[in-house]
Every structure is written in structure tokens, then in C-alpha cells.
């Protein structure tokens, strides 16, 4: 089947948004043994791509995302994000965690404004931008609600709007819909596709849902666990926008099977 050579060939002229070279991460466990969370990870993410990192729980995919965000230091290897070595500076990214991590003392609008406040935007600047973003994630009219007045899906939409606040060239999402029910999840997948098409951000999306990865991604990085390694990189060349009916089509089924095969294969290998 198609593999990474195609996508790299298509985009190799542009400089990547993010490039990892032989990145490894070790921990010392409590009894002093070395635990390898990630081993020899090399990958690049091209501008405008939607890349999923797919793997079983505990394969280190979240750790990988935190390393790209600059929030965890790798033990070995080099990480370059936006043409800068992560050892020198934190990257300009937007990040969405599994839980919304909203501040309960702030309204939806004030939560979205937070990143603007931190860089010292004026009140008028950030208010306008935050209102537009809430509209983009379908929450117009909910500006003055507090997080405890919003459903889980709505809270996660606020978190996405907040992550987009500084128009980051790279959006990192760590199983953002993992805690939501299936219906909400499907709806948000559709909207996320819409948002990614509109904002033209590069997105790295961590998930353990095969269907989610297949539906959303241009490219899926398949990982195996213990130690976390990249088993395969698979390009999904279904044109966008992808309608929700796609997930019941045979064509989509083929992709899902292909991913599942890569994943199962990696499990056996590990």
C-alpha cells in the first residue's frame, strides 16, 4: 500500500513544521531500572498536514506530543519545531489536552482570552479574536457561561478555541475527545476537520481510535509500545472535506483495516 515515501516526495521542498531526529526518552523507575518510553523516533511533519499518532495505551504517544510541545525534555535526539531547536526556546504551539483544563473562575470567553492576556494583547484585541474563535467552534452565545455550566463537549470546544487563540502554526491535541461520548465525539471530529481546513494549521493529533485517525488524518503514524517506536507511517489520500457518511463506505473500511493491520503487527512485534 501507499506509504510515507509518497507524502514526503510531495512536500519535501517545504521546510517541515516539526522534525524529530532519533529522539529517545528514558525514565528511571522507582526500583532504579531504566524504562524506555520512546526509542529512536524520527519523523517530520509538513506544513498544513493533519497527522495522527495512533497507538495502544502506554506506547508513549502522549510523551511524544509533550516533547514536541517542549514540555518534556527528550533524553536523546534532536527536536526542531518551527526551525528552532527546542533546547533554545519553547515553540509557539496551541495545545489541547484530554480534559479541557479550563479555569472554573473564568467565563468561556475569558478562558479563550487567556493566551492573549499572557502575551499582553489589549482587551479589545483579544476580546474580538476570542469571540470569533468561539463562533468558529460553534459556541456563539455561550461567551458568558462558566465551565461548570457547559457540557463536556462544549468545554472541549472552548479548549480548542483557546488553543487557536494565538493562531499557532502547530496545534497539538492529546486524545482531545477521549473522555467524550461516541455521539459528541463524532460531531467534534467533523467540526475539527472543518476547523483544520479553515485555520490551515498543522495538527498533530494523538489518539487510540483507529476510525478517528483514519477519518481525520492526511498521515497516520502508527506506534507500538514498550519501548515506544514508530512501526509504520501511512498516508490516507481521501479528498477533503470528508463527509461523515464516509465512515460507512467500503473505501473507508479498507483504510481502517490497513491501519488495524499495522497496529496488530506492531503489537506482535512488541
Amino acid at each position: 500500500m501507499r506509504s510515507e515515501s509518497i507524502s514526503t516526495a510531495l512536500t519535501s521542498n517545504e521546510s517541515p513544521v516539526c522534525e524529530l531526529t532519533e529522539v529517545s526518552k528514558f525514565y528511571l523507575s522507582q526500583d532504579g531500572t531504566k524504562v524506555i518510553a520512546l526509542e529512536n523516533i524520527s519523523c517530520r511533519v509538513e506544513p498544513g498536514q493533519f497527522v495522527s499518532v495512533l497507538g495502544p495505551s502506554g506506547c508513549g504517544k502522549s510523551t511524544l506530543l509533550m516533547i514536541i510541545a517542549g514540555l518534556i525534555q527528550p533524553s536523546q535526539g534532536r527536536v526542531i519545531v518551527q526551525d528552532k531547536d527546542l533546547r533554545d526556546a519553547l515553540p509557539d504551539i496551541g495545545i489541547v489536552f484530554q480534559d479541557a483544563v479550563l479555569f472554573p473562575w473564568r467565563t468561556a470567553l475569558q478562558n479563550v482570552e487567556l493566551p492573549g492576556e499572557i502575551v499582553g494583547e489589549t482587551r479589545a484585541q483579544r476580546r474580538g479574536a476570542a469571540q470569533e474563535l468561539l463562533q468558529l467552534v460553534g459556541l456563539a452565545g455561550f461567551e458568558r457561561k462558566f465551565p461548570n455550566e457547559l457540557s463536556g463537549g462544549m468545554q472541549q470546544r472552548v479548549a480548542i478555541a483557546r488553543a487557536l487563540m494565538r493562531s499557532p502554526s502547530l496545534l497539538l491535541m492529546d486524545e482531545p475527545f477521549g473522555a467524550l461520548d461516541a455521539m459528541t465525539r463524532e460531531q467534534l471530529n467533523l467540526e475539527l476537520q472543518q476547523i483544520s481546513l479553515q485555520s490551515k494549521s498543522t495538527i498533530i493529533f494523538v489518539t487510540h481510535s483507529i476510525a478517528e485517525a483514519a477519518f481525520l488524518s492526511d498521515r497516520v503514524i502508527v506506534m507500538s509500545g514498550r519501548p515506544g517506536t514508530i512501526k509504520d507511517t501511512i498516508a490516507i489520500d481521501i479528498p477533503r472535506p470528508r463527509p461523515i457518511e464516509l465512515i460507512t463506505s467500503d473505501r473507508f473500511g479498507t483504510w481502517v483495516q490497513h491501519l488495524r493491520h499495522a497496529l496488530d503487527h506492531s503489537e506482535v512485534g512488541a
Partner: peptide, 14 residues
């Protein structure tokens, strides 16, 4: 304090 809030503030370079 919730460590995820700390991560969030760090990612925002606060």
C-alpha cells in the same frame, strides 16, 4: 495545584 494547569501555563509561555 492541578499539574495539567501548570502544563497549560508553561505551554502558553506564561
Amino acid at each position: 495545584v492541578d499539574p495539567r494547569r501548570v502544563l497549560l501555563m508553561r505551554s502558553l509561555k506564561a
